[in-house]
Amino acid sequence: MIAASNLVAILGMALATLACRAGGYFLFRALRPSPFLRAMLGYVPGALFVGYVAPALAAGGAKEWVGAAATLITVRLSGNIAIGIAAGTVSAWLVWLAR
């Protein structure tokens, strides 16, 4: 079942999101970026994920800090992201249970 207003809202969200996904790339291609802008884009991926993580950790408590540390260490040692996510989540869960 699909309500008309829900459908329009979902399509609006989809269009806005596609505009972000495709718009940046086509704008970049049309503008022929300078070497400085190209250098900048090399640093964007890491900084973007730091931007996700830093406020979440700052707002979090022991659960988040222990979980994040366990994730980092496990991924670093195993080279496996799935194991890191699992280890981090289990550690966070243990801290949560212990409190």
């Binding site: 890491g46 993580v53 659960k63 994730t71 869960w93």
Partner: peptide
């Protein structure tokens, strides 16, 4: 709930391969 921590853990874990 700590289950939601998995979402943050995914972003934390992605930092490792991004570090140059």
């Amino acid at each position: 709930h700590p289950l939601f921590f998995a979402a943050l853990a995914a972003f934390v874990s992605l930092l490792v391969p991004l570090w140059r």
